[in-house]
């Protein structure tokens, strides 16, 4: 048996084994209705293995190890998300209290609740507004700075990079106290601008890195070439450089948006009413419809709602995000 063939057989069998373990564990341990999850997972793995064995050597370029691995990755990344969706569909306190993964009495009441709740609507509006504004400003400032860093020689360039690096490592919580004190003194506590300013500071380092990495890859000779060909400097910049730089700017914008959308610390410390409260902070302070209600399912529904934009962005722009993340080696 060739090593390639041997590895294919081994991994096909491994997939079948994983599948059987899932199905078996499900039958052995898990009550209805959650049992279905385990059976379906098991079936997917068994089928993978069966296809792997049946397909023979006809598709040698497909590594079965990686397919089983990919299935495990998807299982890993999506389980908690699917659980949130499932929790959000649970039909009432009784259903929630029953526990388990899948709802017994599915329905959309929690979504109705969440959307009837005006603080949450305000929070969505605030979060979109604040995130988009700070992303735009941050990307513009970062583009200038990154251009300087990537293309110019000037004294203090190292300083710019060091400041960016230091800010990226800065413990955000250490700032909220003094910022709260200052913001209340100058009267921008609980306002959009009060959140936009700190978001700017903390997204700039990432944007600068992502962008300067992109700018270094741009073949700037083309600009000169265009100028030689008679284009003005502005035309050369607009026609040649902008299209090349745009993907980088876009990537930086996405990663910046993620940061602003995700922020919690500034949100809970520097805002408090529907005037400026962002989504993550509003989630943390949900209460039930009355003092007797546990808001678990409603929080889950709200969580699903605020994850949808992330999902869409990730599906549409995954390639850009990955290249941005690894080029700048930053994190949002």
């Amino acid at each position: 048996m060739s090593p390639r063939r041997k590895s294919r057989v081994v991994w096909s069998l491994a997939a079948i084994a994983i599948g059987l373990i899932f199905a078996g564990a499900g039958l052995w341990l898990i009550d209805r209705p959650d049992l279905w999850l385990w059976l379906i997972t098991g079936t997917v793995f068994v089928l993978t293995g069966a296809v792997g064995l049946a397909i023979g050597d006809n598709a040698p370029q497909i590594s079965w190890a990686s397919i089983v691995g990919a299935e495990l990755i998807v299982l890993y990344t999506l389980t908690p998300v699917v659980y949130l969706v499932s929790l959000s569909l649970k039909g009432g306190n009784a259903d929630v209290n029953q526990g388990g993964f899948l709802p017994h009495d599915p329905g959309f009441t929690n979504y109705e609740t969440v959307f009837e709740f005006s603080l949450f609507q305000h929070a969505l509006f605030n979060s979109f507004g604040i995130s988009i504004i700070s992303t735009s400003i941050s990307v513009v400032l970062a583009t200038f700075a990154a251009y300087a860093v990537a293309r110019l020689r000037f004294r203090g360039k190292k300083l710019v990079l060091s400041v960016a690096l230091a800010i990226a490592m800065f413990p955000v919580v250490a700032l909220v106290g003094p910022l709260f004190d200052m913001w209340r003194a100058i009267g921008i506590y609980d306002t959009w601008i009060g959140l936009i300013i700190p978001y700017l500071s903390f997204t700039l380092p990432m944007s600068i890195w992502v962008l300067s990495a992109f700018f270094r890859e741009i073949p700037w000779e083309m600009e000169q070439a265009a100028e030689v060909d008679g284009a003005t400097a502005w035309q050369a910049f607009r026609k040649v450089i902008v299209p090349l730089a745009a993907p980088g700017v876009f990537t930086a914008a996405i990663i910046t948006f993620f940061f602003a959308w995700n922020d919690f610390v500034f949100g809970i410390s520097l805002s408090s009413t529907e005037r400026s409260i962002p989504v993550p902070a509003s989630l943390a302070f949900f209460t039930g419809a009355s003092q007797f209600d546990q808001p678990i399912a409603a929080i889950a529904a709200a969580s699903v709602v605020v994850t949808i934009p992330i999902f869409v962005i990730v599906l549409l722009f995954q390639r850009k995000i990955v290249s941005g993340l690894t080029s700048g080696a930053v994190k949002g």
Partner: peptide, 24 residues
């Protein structure tokens, strides 16, 4: 190593990265 469904795997791996920490 994966040759098929690259985009899908990459998108799914970005979900935990992009999700709000509070939600997670």
């Amino acid at each position: 190593n994966i040759l098929v469904a690259r985009g899908l795997v990459r998108a799914s791996i970005l979900v935990p990265y992009g999700i709000i920490t509070v939600v997670s």
